[in-house]
Amino acid sequence: MVDAIRFRDDEAHDEPAVTLDSFLGQSNATAVRIEAGEDARVLLPHLDRLALVEVSFPKFRDGRGYSSGRILREAGYTGELRAQGDVLVDQIPLMRRCGFDSFAPEAPVDAAVLEASLARYSVHYQAAADSHIPVWKRRNG
């Protein structure tokens, strides 16, 4: 597997992500993988011991993971949040806004296209799980 594209300063977490079932069944795992149909909210009581949550995107059209990412960030999760699977370059800016800071696409991503995509929108209309100030707040001070 190719190295993840990371937007974090810390070292990549080296413990493999376990399934949600095994995570809930063992007390010492610090990395978990949730499938698209799994409920991210069951992780909320365990956020303080998690260093990595990997969210699966089985098909690029399957957008459930965007909600999972936001739910985790909105609940205060600060560890690594990785999108893994059929993750395409045009989706990464949206995923960044939903709180993902690490990406493990199945197919390689063109670094130049990604850089341009991430720089393209200087403002966003709505608040999300990133640090952008929504347009309505910029307008109204």
Partner: peptide, 9 residues
């Protein structure tokens, strides 16, 4: 418009 969570409904 470009709602990041609701673009792949």
């Amino acid at each position: 418009t470009f709602h990041p969570e609701f673009t792949y409904l």
